[in-house]
Write a protein that binds this DNA or RNA. Structure first.
Ligand SMILES: [Mn+2]
Ligand SMILES: [Mn+2]
Ligand SMILES: [Zn+2]
Ligand SMILES: [Zn+2]
Lengths: 139, 139
DNA sequence: ATCCTACAATGGACAATGTCTAAGTCAAAT
DNA sequence: ATTTGACTTAGACATTGTCCATTGTAGGAT
């Protein structure tokens, strides 16, 4: 995710300790944190970082297309740094664990024009739900 | 939706003015209201109905499988009385209008086991996004 | 028709999530 | 080193949702 920081510097972003920390927290695979989780982890690295800054920074990253907002649970939005390769999500209905998945086929092609109601359809999100191996083992 | 009231009576539901009003508000096609919208419309019919009762009733309807919770926008949950025929959603990215859609194919079959990470996958939600005819005309 | 009581409704406190602003701070250009 | 406007902060406020003690009532029993 240091390439992210590079790209942002190139776009005229002022590089602050807070933004570096948020970027660090978002680094990794299968990362889908809520704003509050991002804040907690950021505070561990930079105790004085404020909630508002985390929200602001996440919002900016979303506007820039560097992070995606996903709504896999019905409470808080989650922030997904894997914005470059399109993908969908597989969510454990029990513990909420989230994995990135790449299904076959193109769901957009499966929506016939008779089911489009005159909309110009440009995008599709797919969320699979099930039980993860951990939760299955604990049952 | 009077058949809904019948089914609920059969399940031992006490029939109250409040529950009748909530059921009335949820009647119709392509209905996907937030709890607050349900409350507003219910108040128009029964001014003294409380927010708590609307939340309680919606929660009960969801537990009974008579209404679905959907998360097509990233703020409030929406309540969908079309719980009997499985379907997906088409959402206007501009105005938020929601239509029920029935795509071809089965997205569950498109998730190969190599992409299941040991999960037992049981369900899939698909949300199409685009621009509705109204918003396109206004542009 | 009246009574009883378990179930339901109410209002308001509280919690979780998200937005906004005024004032102070600091990155980076000069 | 100075300057400047972008950035951060704390906390008020807004929205969405939950909980609980109290009050009300639907529907069965008499
Ligand atoms: Mn993802
Ligand atoms: Mn629907
Ligand atoms: Zn799990
Ligand atoms: Zn629209």
């Amino acid at each position: 995710m240091s390439d992210l920081l590079e790209r942002l510097r190139g776009r005229g972003w002022r590089m602050t300790a807070q933004r570096r920390v948020v970027a660090e927290v978002l680094d990794g695979e299968h990362v889908h944190l809520t704003a509050d989780e991002v804040h907690s982890r950021a505070v561990a690295k930079l105790p004085e970082i404020s909630r508002a800054t985390v929200y602001n920074t996440l919002g900016e990253l979303v506007s820039l297309g560097e992070v995606l907002e996903v709504a896999t649970d019905k409470r808080a939005k989650r922030y997904d740094p894997n914005a470059h390769r399109p993908h969908h999500h597989l969510v454990c209905a029990q513990c909420g664990a989230i994995r990135d998945v790449h299904p076959n086929g193109n769901p957009l092609a499966d929506l016939p024009s008779s089911e489009r109601f005159g909309f110009t359809v440009s995008d599709v999100e797919v969320t699979y739900r099930g039980i993860c191996p951990n939760c299955a083992a604990a049952a």
